[in-house]
Design a protein around this nucleic acid. Structure first.
Length: 221
DNA sequence: GTTGAGCGTT
């Protein structure tokens, strides 16, 4: 079992963060630990996962206690085949909170004291990130030269609305209708089964069809 | 059952 990430992000100041890219979607921290632990003391390993699906995002973070170990791991594990895919190991550029990191070590801390003054609207970054990373993937794989197309899309975003919210409200049926339907539905079924308005026939439901084809054969000798 | 550039928390 993974004992990483259970107590949140430990002391990042005293550790060097490594970014592991090009990982398979099935690779977990447990799979990376034995590989990275061989080259030094691993403080923590974390692999961002999607909260909705729970799938790995294809990359992870490995924290070393000493810089030399981290550097060695980068040099040795970079391009290492893991689960049939070569992973890329490099020093992290940003910290968990977007802090600037140099060589895996924090060199610049976010202006928390000053940034705090800023009225930063506390928005849900979880969902946003989840959806964003998906869209970014798609865009990147194809939209490298599609910058022009993107701009066009933004302009055409307006006519996207063809219906007004009022229409939706109108669409919703009245409670009476819903009630009636709810009542009618089971009632009809119940009636149909109970009353047996139409006696179930053992024969085919449409003998006429057979009859229409029969005559031909019947008349035939 | 899929995907593939990037930067992270229970």
């Amino acid at each position: 079992m993974s004992h990483f990430g259970r107590s949140g992000p430990p002391e990042i100041k005293d550790s060097f963060s490594l970014l592991v890219l090009n990982l398979t979607f099935r690779t977990s921290a447990d799979d990376l630990y034995p590989l990275f632990d061989r080259y030094g003391e691993v403080v923590d390993i974390y692999i961002p996962r999607n909260r909705r699906t729970g799938d790995s995002r294809g990359f992870g973070f490995v924290r070393y206690k000493y810089f030399e170990d981290a550097q060695k791991a980068v040099d040795r594990l970079d391009g290492k085949m893991v689960d049939g895919r070569a992973m890329m190991v490099q020093f992290a550029k940003y910290g968990p909170n977007a802090e600037k990191i140099h060589k895996g070590r924090i060199v610049e801390v976010m202006g928390r004291s000053r940034g705090r003054s800023r009225s930063r609207s506390p928005r849900r970054r979880d969902d946003d990130r989840d959806r964003d990373y998906r869209r970014r993937s798609r865009s990147r794989s194809r939209g490298r030269d599609r910058d022009r197309g993107r701009g066009r899309d933004y302009r055409r975003r307006s006519p996207s609305r063809s219906r007004s919210p009022d229409d939706y409200k109108r669409r919703s049926r009245s409670p009476d209708d819903y009630k009636r339907r709810s009542n009618v539905s089971p009632d009809r079924r119940s009636l149909s089964r109970s009353r047996s308005r139409s006696p179930p026939r053992k024969a085919s439901p449409s003998p006429a069809r057979d009859a229409s084809r029969s005559p031909r054969r019947s008349t035939s000798p």
